[in-house]
Design a binder for these strands. Structure first.
Lengths: 253, 253
DNA sequence: GCAAATATAATCATATACAATCAATTTTAC
DNA sequence: GTAAAATTGATTGTATATGATTATATTTGC
């Protein structure tokens, strides 16, 4: 039995019983116990089960199947905290842009508290998250589907964005630097982000501290674009001071 | 054994077993293992299976970002059969419209077999279904999200549709009648469907027999709109004859 | 709290699968 | 009928998966 099927077997066994021993897996799969151990480690890192001494138990926490792979969601807590701060900047009756980054995504789950809000986005996970809350009006910008980014891009998307106008834009970045400005991993992602920022009255950059004073391959704007930078408390004080001295409006969790 | 037949054999074997080794394919197909490897690589890129070390497993449907509630999917088998018939009308390199009905939705899962296909839709479940298959190009028409229909509507959507042009449109209807034409449960759904039909060279109406000679509350077009009506074999022969005598191009499963 | 039993992790060795390159064959096009 | 293209197969080096062994950590019984 090879790896893929073995993983399925392990998951299936865990769906039937609340706890399964290594030995049980070994006999079911006809492999050595070290191999099972390795499989369990892998599956645990994917959030599909929890290892115990002697075996494994099913993962009780609901797997958040909103669309991003779990490895795309590292720094989850920092990102959540940043978004808790960001949501306090939103007011009733606002129209907001949300771009398609993973940081901004966490903002979506905090939006249903508003009674009247309009969200404009090109991100499918954001739409998915807001779907159960019909009182939040969602406008999805169309375009060509990028299956890996789970969002819509292309000239059509760019054109459409210019037709909408928002009070506030919440955007992400792969890198932020005083000298180099904002950078992104994807050219087309950058294009959408830039258009959103230009069409909004206020621009908020949501960005965990690991990305500050880093640069990614595509530079698309100076820091002038943003009105406020929101990051987490892990940011080194020296960098924080430097940003403040350059008159960057920066707040931390 | 020729390539096409070999691919079918590979798919068939994987429908019967959860895991098939390279060696098994080799003996079944009487070709070298490198050839099998090449076939598997190709089929994997088409989203029809998943390669493993030593062989392949059937493609596991990954968790869906969006989907219909299962109770919205009654007449599942009829609809699937209708779509199997419909897919035979699609050719390589086509650009097709798909509207947001549940019947048309079943067509999505049959599309990854095409190497080069462009799909234009306003339906989120269709997008979700095609997400794991990046080789199918998807253009999502933007607009205002309707959370119950899981699709996008509104003036923006209508305007955008006029900018795209497709070879074939696959549409649904809540009711079809010789005298009253096509009808829908939702005004805005009808608007999108109509625009798609007008912008396509050929229009195919996918519609299970329970909806034939029924009407729903919003009538939006005569039957002239469609080039072919595809329904299931449960349709009463008397109605079938009547449609044929009126020169409606109708085929059944 | 300590020791025995067991589970786990780390390192290494080996077998197997895989990809890349090139050669041979078949098919297709003109 | 010949050239070009596509398909298939053989060979070699590389990558991956698995298992054995040894050392470390954790649990359990007293």
């Amino acid at each position: 039995m090879t790896q893929e099927l073995r993983k399925k077997t392990i998951i299936r066994l865990l769906e039937q019983k609340d706890e399964v021993s290594i030995q049980e897996f070994v006999t079911q799969c006809n492999v050595s116990e070290i191999t099972i151990r390795r499989d369990l480690t892998l599956l645990e890192s994917m959030g599909l089960l929890k290892r115990t001494h002697g075996g494994a138990v099913p993962n009780t926490t609901i797997p958040e199947l909103f669309g991003f792979e779990s490895n795309a969601l590292d720094k989850r807590n920092q990102k959540r905290d940043i978004c808790k701060l960001a949501v306090s900047l939103i007011e009733e009756n606002d129209t907001i842009y949300m771009d398609c980054g993973t940081t901004v995504f966490f903002l979506a789950s905090l939006l249903p508290r508003f009674k009247n809000l309009r969200v404009i986005t090109n991100s499918l996970p954001v739409v998915s998250e807001l779907m159960p809350h019909p009182h939040v009006k969602v406008y999805l910008i169309g375009g060509e589907l990028d299956t890996s980014l789970k969002a819509l891009y292309g000239p059509m998307t760019d054109n459409l964005l210019s037709k909408y106008k928002a009070d506030k834009a919440f955007i992400g970045a792969a890198g932020v630097s005083l000298s180099q400005g904002l950078s992104s991993n994807h050219e087309k992602e950058a294009s959408v982000t830039l258009k959103m920022a230009e069409a909004a009255d206020k621009v908020f950059l949501l960005c965990d501290s690991s990305k500050i004073e880093k640069t990614s391959y595509f530079h698309y704007s100076s820091l002038d674009l943003i009105d406020q930078l929101i990051t987490d408390k892990e940011i080194p004080p020296s960098i924080l001071e430097k940003y403040k001295s350059k008159n960057i409006n920066i707040i931390t969790t």
